[in-house]
Nucleic acid binder design. Structure first.
Lengths: 146, 146
DNA sequence: TTTACAAAGTTGATTTTTTGAACTTAGTAT
DNA sequence: ATACTAAGTTCAAAAAATCAACTTTGTAAA
């Protein structure tokens, strides 16, 4: 079945869910308000129906989107993000910022709407809310038997 | 040749460079100090030599890594990140944070090493350095002829 | 009341990628 | 000599993505 990364790392495990071709772009379109099958298909120049259909099904299984029946009789669904899908926004923003710095041609930028200043990625403490200038990745202790 | 997303968006264009299977994980291993071919291969359980070799070649073409000859006679290279490769760190961190909130099993967390507090993603103004609480994605104006 | 058209898919053949295993080349260690 | 390692390359087999055609239910127009 699905070929998955068998690597003990958040990044690899996250990519097992959102790393397939088109997947992040599909979520991004839904985030941008394109909630219907054909809206998404039209926005994603080149994706085929069967693949879009399969990806949507998989993302729903994984809990990143929910499909809502908006017409009974020809059954028609609109696709919306769950919290976990919406939380990918920071990943999108990190990609937009990276792209604006390193792509030959940049299409989008992140700005502070109150000042117009361009913004970059930072980190803040969940406890205090203050910006944190130095960060560290720590390994979760593997809980052994007890 | 390479199937690429033909979509005018930083995210799609960035994924054209770093969105192939294994690519982000390879860069992440180099960032973590695994700079030799077999170190990367060993860390990435399941990747095959030919694919690793092809991905490294492509990433060098795209300017995300540089290979440095460290032994002349059996030609041996070590792989290191350029600035553009290193700048993907924010993307990795965004994925680590997303994973720590939404994966069934979390392997890593981001903390402030001075306090031990867990951290989340924020944004700051490139001009003032201050944290920005509201952000907006703006489309780059397409430069027409002049 | 046919005819046309759209939305949301499904089916199946073709093409492209990825995997997996074996092989190579140059060198070091025993 | 023999074994073993690093860093790949080559090629066959398997898996995934693309592409085009088709289906189903319904709405709009002639």
């Amino acid at each position: 079945m699905k070929p998955k990364y068998n690597i003990p790392c958040n990044i690899a495990q996250s990519l097992n869910i959102i790393g397939d071709r088109w997947t992040l772009l599909i979520i991004h379109e839904i985030l941008n308000g394109n909630t219907m099958f054909n809206e998404i298909k039209k926005a994603l120049n080149g994706i085929s129906s069967n693949l879009l259909s399969e990806r949507l099904r998989y993302l729903e299984e994984e809990g990143l989107i929910v499909s809502e029946l908006y017409s009974q009789h020809p059954p028609r669904y609109s696709y919306n993000l769950t919290t976990s899908g919406r939380d990918l926004e920071h990943v999108f923003n990190a990609l937009i910022v990276w792209g604006s710095n390193h792509l030959k041609k940049c299409y989008k930028r992140l700005i502070d709407p109150s000042t117009g200043d361009e913004v970059g990625i930072a980190y803040y403490s969940l406890k205090t809310g203050e910006m944190v200038h130095d960060i560290q990745v720590v390994e979760e202790l593997t809980e052994s038997r007890n």
